[in-house]
Simulated scan of single mutants.
Amino acid sequence: MTDTPAVEPDPAAAARRITERREQLGIEEEELARRAAMAPNYLRHLLTAGPSFDPGGFVRIAAALGTTREALVEGRSDAPPGQGAPGPRPRLLDLTEAECWELVGTHGVGRVGLPVRPGPVVYPVNFVVDRHTVAYRTAGGSATDPADDAEASFQVDHLDEYLGRGWTVLVLGTAHHVTDEEELRHLAGLPGSAPWAGGDRPLWVRIRPDDVTGRRIVSG
C-alpha cells in the first residue's frame, strides 16, 4: 500500500486568507510585515511564492495575525480525523539587538532579498558575521550580486512550523562590494566563508545594517 502524495498548499488561497484576516483586524500590509519580522517586499514575495517557499514564515504571519498556520495555509482550525490535534497557536516576543546577533552566530545559511524589477528576488546564501555586518561571497554578475549601495534585506531563522516555536532575525541595510585586499583576506579566513556560487568573477558582498530586529516564537 502506497501513501497518498501530499497536496501542495495553494499559494493564492493562503494569500487570500491572510489578506482577509489582516483586513478583519485592521492591519496594514507594512504593519503585518513588521510584526512578522520580515521586510514588506519579502512578505509580498512570500504571499506569491506560497507556504512551501518558507514554511516558517507562515508561522510568523500566523502569530502576527493571532491565528494558526493551519488556518491560513489549509483553511481549517481542526485537524482531520486521525491526524492529531491542530498545531499550537504561536506568539511573537521581541528580541534585543544583542540577542539577535547572538542567535545569528558567526556563520550559517540565510536568505538575502534584493530589489530587482518586478522583484524582489530572494535567494539562500551561506554567510559570515563580521563586526556586526553580514557578508557573503557570490559570483560577479549573478542574481545575488547587487548594485553597490543597493537596499538589501537579510533573514535567518530557526523554526519548527508545526510546533510553532523558534526565532527569526531580520537585517535591513545596504549592500556593498568589498574591494579592499586586506579586508578580502580577512573575510576569506573566517569560518564558513567557502562560497556556494562559482563563476569566473567571485566577489564578496557586505550588508551594513540600518536596522536589526528579531522575534522569538513561542507556543500556547
Rank of each mutant, 00 (worst) to 15 (best):
T213M: 00
V122L: 05
V59G: 02
R111E: 06
R17P: 05
P55D: 02
L203Q: 06
V169T: 00
D200E: 14
T133M: 05
W167A: 04
S77D: 08
P40A: 04
W204V: 10
D3I: 15
G119Y: 04
V129D: 02
S77W: 13
S193E: 01
L43W: 06
E97P: 00
A152R: 06
L92W: 11
A15R: 04
G164H: 14
G192F: 01
G199T: 12
Y136P: 01
G56C: 07
P209F: 11
G105M: 04
P11H: 06
V205A: 05
G189K: 15
R117K: 14
P5Y: 02
R34C: 09
A14H: 10
D78Q: 15
A33H: 11
L65Y: 12
S77A: 13
P5S: 04
A79C: 10
G140P: 01
T174R: 15
R22A: 03
I27V: 11
V112F: 11
L43K: 07
L114V: 01
P202C: 02
E74W: 15
M1Y: 06
T68Q: 13
P191F: 09
A37I: 00
P51M: 05
A33F: 04
A37H: 00
G75W: 02
V129G: 05
T19F: 13
E97H: 05
P5L: 07
P80K: 15
Q24G: 12
V7T: 15
P86Q: 08
G50Y: 03
D200Q: 14
W101C: 06
W204Y: 09
V128S: 03
G56W: 01
A197E: 11
L25W: 02
A36P: 08
E181H: 10
A14Q: 01
G173I: 10
R76S: 12
S142K: 12
A98P: 05
D180N: 02
P195A: 10
L184V: 03
E31Q: 09
A197C: 07
R91A: 06
R137K: 02
R60E: 13
I18Y: 09
L93D: 00
G26L: 08
F58A: 04
Q83P: 01
S52I: 12
G84M: 06
E29Y: 14
G173T: 05
A188G: 11
S142Y: 11
D149F: 04
D145L: 08
R34N: 03
R35H: 11
D149R: 15
E102N: 05
G189H: 09
R21N: 09
E31S: 02
F58N: 05
G214S: 00
A152C: 00
D145T: 14
R208W: 03
Y42N: 09
D180C: 04
V59S: 08
E181F: 08
Y162R: 14
F58P: 03
H107W: 15
